[in-house]
């Protein structure tokens, strides 16, 4: 940026001194953000490039193969099965997490004895890393030695051997470990709502359904959207729990896109085709997140 004298020109007077100097302050102030942006964009650009190559991490050479990885991906049954599992797990987990999280938030929003302890206990699953949750539940659900089968008298039931019960268990563990987060966000939302409209509705004799449907949910919508945004981004990348419990089996019934990508990279070493799948997942994640974020902005603006 240059700074020049702003005084009007005067032909009779000596020309004013012009000081040129660079103002580095804006550059310095934006440098961290610029570096962070480069740090994000560079690997992303590299990933896009690799998705058009036949790059194998145990090979010294590779070449650009155009859209071959994408064409094969779309014609590969394993990819579609993994994509179906990914979206099904995401939808089911979000549905249960939101419903249960809301119920728990409603319960914890009351002033009853012991509610503080319950809020603290609610945090416990959040503190357990997902992979540990997976291993813990795998042990609990073991067919012969697991306490769940023993307590519920289920005999020798092999939870992870039946495709549908394996899917159910994966969703269950995901819900178990993430519902507290949803509940906490919605609880903070409930506590921030103004009391006056609720009191007025009660004075006017409004029933619980009316209060829930016409007051609470619309006012809580920004919180619901923001928690959905966080959870969608996370649950579409579901990996740890599946890896720790089923490794994607039996057959391919619990294989998600991240599991498929993991196996391609670390077992088959085909980084090129794996990045094509990662980018596909990124597109889906981006579209859903963008839509949720724009809805959140509109909702937040309308409430203000």
């Amino acid at each position: 940026m240059t700074v020049t004298s702003l005084s009007p020109s005067n032909s009779s007077a000596a020309p004013p001194a012009v000081h040129k100097r660079t103002d580095w302050l804006p550059v310095i102030m934006t440098a961290p953000a610029t570096l962070a942006l480069i740090g994000i964009l560079y690997p992303f650009a590299i990933a896009v490039y690799y998705s058009f190559t036949n790059y194998r991490i145990v090979s010294k050479t590779y070449k650009v193969v155009g859209f071959q990885n994408y064409v094969r991906m779309f014609s590969n049954a394993d990819f579609w099965e993994a994509m179906g599992n990914t979206l099904m797990f995401a939808a089911a987990a979000l549905l249960f997490e939101l419903a249960l999280g809301f119920l728990i938030a409603l319960l914890l929003n009351r002033s009853v004895p012991g509610v503080g302890l319950m809020r603290a206990l609610l945090l416990l699953p959040l503190m357990v890393p997902p992979v540990i949750s997976g291993m813990m539940w795998k042990t609990m659900l073991a067919s012969s030695s697991g306490p769940v089968n023993y307590i519920f008298g289920l005999g020798n039931y092999a939870w992870f051997a039946n495709p549908w019960s394996a899917r159910f268990v994966v969703i269950f563990i995901e819900v178990w470990s993430s519902t507290p987060f949803v509940a906490l966000v919605l609880l903070s939302g409930l506590q921030s709502l103004p009391k006056a409209p609720f009191e007025a509705a009660q004075v006017d004799g409004a029933n619980a359904w009316f209060i829930l449907n016409r007051l609470m949910l619309p006012m809580l919508k920004p919180f619901i959207l923001i928690v959905l945004l966080f959870r969608v981004v996370d649950v579409i990348k579901l990996f740890d729990i599946v890896f720790a419990t089923t490794s994607g089996g039996p057959m391919f019934t619990t294989t998600t896109i991240p599991i498929l990508v993991y196996k391609e990279v670390f077992k088959s070493y085909t980084l090129g085709s794996a990045t094509a799948k990662v980018l596909m997942l990124w597109v889906i994640n981006y579209v859903i997140s963008f839509w949720l974020a724009s809805r959140w902005r509109k909702t937040a603006a309308s409430i203000r």
Partner: peptide
Amino acid sequence: SPEWPNMMWFDVQQGFTS
């Protein structure tokens, strides 16, 4: 075992030991 599709080497080791 019906758990065969989920048995890693350590599951085999553990299962036989128990």
